[in-house]
Amino acid sequence: MRFKDVFSIIGPAMVGPSSSHTAGAVRIGRVARHLLGELPEQADILFYGSFADTYQGHGTDLAIIGGLLDFDTDDPRIPNSITIAEQLGMKIVFRPGKGQFPHPNTAKLIVRAGEREAIVVGASIGGGNIEVLGINDFDVKFTAMYPTLIVFHEDRPGMIAEVTRILSRDSVNIGHMSVDRRGRSGEAVTVIDVDGSITDALVEEIEQLSTVKEVRKVDLTERSGP
């Protein structure tokens, strides 16, 4: 069993009031930011379950936007995140989601910058921990607790073996893998969380594979900002 570090036991350093409604929401927002690869120009945020009922009172709206600004869970700017985002030109819409949802604390983020779009469905499962349950309409599952590679590719024989060969050569250990596809020989995504850092050179090499369309890195251990 992998040691998950003290964060998974006592929760993160954070701006309150709730690890589920704020810290977890920040992390969901950061996943969407990293998947998009830049500051969103537009953010359409759907809340489900408990999130939909209490997001304003618990600051979940502020937390999600703080994550989109790539603030960490303890960033003192989170209470002012919506103001900061709007000053940077971000257009924000909050609305309740409709239909089934996988967890009481679920959010769906649709973010855009120029012609780029990223869609993330994530659930805050307690203690600041999250599960990402969907990206760009693919069904996947990962926690973003570790550096994570997201590889969009064609569903072709040997593609995953090529990616794992590159990781093995660079002594990058795979902790978990999730794969989904849109039909046989169609579009697919492979999500790989790893032990250790993911270098830009590694991302670029995987992007050069003939069946790969795009590679994104989600690494919430990195601190940055707008």
Score class of each variant (00 low, 15 high):
residue 161 A to N: 11
residue 158 G to W: 01
residue 177 M to E: 01
residue 184 R to A: 08
residue 177 M to N: 07
residue 157 P to N: 07
residue 175 G to N: 15
residue 172 V to P: 12
residue 184 R to H: 12
residue 185 S to T: 03
residue 155 D to V: 06
residue 162 E to V: 03
residue 163 V to C: 12
residue 179 V to Q: 06
residue 163 V to M: 10
residue 152 F to H: 13
residue 179 V to G: 00
residue 154 E to V: 00
residue 165 R to W: 10
residue 160 I to S: 09
residue 185 S to I: 02
residue 165 R to N: 15
residue 165 R to I: 09
residue 161 A to H: 07
residue 159 M to S: 13
residue 173 N to T: 12
residue 179 V to S: 01
residue 181 R to F: 02
residue 169 R to C: 05
residue 182 R to S: 10
residue 159 M to N: 10
residue 187 E to P: 03
residue 183 G to N: 03
residue 174 I to H: 14
residue 157 P to T: 06
residue 176 H to V: 11
residue 183 G to S: 01
residue 172 V to G: 12
residue 155 D to H: 08
residue 163 V to Q: 09
residue 173 N to M: 07
residue 180 D to A: 13
residue 164 T to V: 15
residue 183 G to K: 06
residue 182 R to T: 07
residue 182 R to E: 11
residue 165 R to L: 14
residue 182 R to F: 15
residue 166 I to H: 11
residue 159 M to V: 15
residue 178 S to Y: 03
residue 187 E to Q: 07
residue 167 L to D: 11
residue 153 H to Q: 13
residue 178 S to D: 04
residue 156 R to Q: 12
residue 156 R to T: 10
residue 183 G to Y: 02
residue 162 E to C: 06
residue 158 G to L: 03
residue 175 G to H: 13
residue 166 I to W: 09
residue 173 N to G: 04
residue 158 G to I: 03
residue 170 D to L: 12
residue 162 E to T: 09
residue 180 D to T: 00
residue 173 N to V: 08
residue 154 E to G: 00
residue 160 I to H: 04
residue 184 R to G: 05
residue 157 P to E: 02
residue 163 V to L: 12
residue 177 M to K: 00
residue 153 H to S: 11
residue 173 N to S: 14
residue 182 R to I: 08
residue 183 G to A: 05
residue 166 I to A: 12
residue 175 G to C: 11
residue 168 S to K: 13
residue 161 A to R: 08
residue 173 N to C: 06
residue 176 H to I: 13
residue 182 R to C: 02
residue 162 E to A: 14
residue 165 R to H: 14
residue 157 P to D: 04
residue 162 E to H: 13
residue 182 R to K: 14
residue 155 D to T: 04
residue 186 G to P: 07
residue 179 V to A: 01
residue 152 F to N: 08
residue 167 L to Y: 09
residue 179 V to Y: 13
residue 157 P to V: 05
residue 186 G to W: 08
residue 166 I to L: 14
residue 169 R to W: 14
residue 171 S to Y: 04
residue 180 D to L: 00
residue 184 R to S: 09
residue 177 M to F: 01
residue 171 S to F: 02
residue 186 G to V: 04
residue 180 D to R: 01
residue 160 I to C: 05
residue 183 G to I: 04
residue 178 S to M: 07
residue 159 M to L: 14
